[in-house]
Simulated scan of single mutants.
Amino acid sequence: MKITMYGAEICPDCVKAKKNLTALNHIDLEYKNIIGDTATLKEFLAYRDHDAIFQEIKESGRIGIPFFILDNGEKTFDIGEYIDLPDETEDTEIPAFSCSIDKKGQC
């Protein structure tokens, strides 16, 4: 299964999701770092600005990452609804509030 993931290395949920997906042999992950270059950020913002899935995200002041697009075109913020992820108890070193505008810990 191919999955495109938009995220950022400063987002703890993104770091964890990328690590989990990379560990799965049956997943072809295309990771797109939205803070890596302007073109990728603009690509992500095009989804965020125009896709209905982001409405609640924008209204609550969140960014909307990690954001996943499945190979069938379906979009989600919760990849665990579509594939079995490995159980992981290890936390990332990045505090959850680091990618939250409102400092409430949700990206």
Rank of each mutant, 00 (worst) to 15 (best):
I35A: 13
I35Y: 15
I35K: 15
I35T: 07
I35F: 15
I35C: 10
G36I: 12
G36H: 03
G36V: 00
G36P: 06
G36E: 01
D37S: 03
D37V: 08
D37H: 12
D37T: 02
D37Q: 11
T38E: 14
T38Y: 10
T38K: 15
A39H: 10
T40N: 10
T40H: 08
T40L: 08
L41P: 04
L41S: 07
K42Q: 13
K42R: 13
K42I: 07
K42H: 08
E43I: 07
E43W: 09
E43T: 00
E43G: 01
F44C: 01
L45W: 04
L45T: 06
A46G: 12
A46N: 13
Y47G: 01
Y47Q: 05
Y47I: 10
R48Q: 13
R48L: 01
R48T: 08
D49T: 10
D49K: 15
D49I: 02
H50F: 05
H50V: 01
D51Y: 13
D51H: 15
D51R: 03
A52P: 01
A52L: 07
A52V: 11
A52C: 06
A52E: 15
A52H: 08
I53R: 03
I53S: 04
I53F: 07
I53L: 13
I53K: 00
F54P: 02
F54C: 03
F54T: 02
Q55H: 11
Q55I: 08
Q55T: 12
E56M: 04
E56S: 10
E56D: 14
I57A: 11
I57F: 05
I57Q: 14
K58H: 10
K58W: 01
K58Y: 05
K58F: 09
K58N: 09
E59H: 09
S60G: 09
S60E: 14
G61Q: 09
G61K: 06
G61C: 04
G61F: 08
G61S: 15
R62M: 14
R62I: 04
I63N: 03
I63E: 09
I63C: 07
I63Q: 06
I63H: 07
I63L: 09
I63W: 00
I63Y: 08
G64V: 10
G64M: 12
I65E: 00
P66K: 02
P66Q: 06
P66V: 11
F67C: 01
F67P: 01
F67W: 14
F67R: 06
F68Q: 03
F68W: 14
I69Y: 00
I69W: 09
I69R: 09
I69S: 02
L70Y: 08
L70C: 09
L70W: 02
L70N: 09
L70D: 08
D71T: 15
N72V: 07
N72Q: 02
N72P: 00
N72Y: 07
G73L: 02
G73Y: 02
E74I: 14
E74N: 03
E74T: 13
K75D: 00
K75Y: 02
T76C: 00
T76Y: 04
T76G: 01
T76I: 00
F77P: 04
F77Q: 11
F77A: 06
F77K: 08
D78T: 14
D78Q: 15
I79Y: 12
I79E: 01
I79K: 01
I79Q: 05
G80W: 12
G80Y: 13
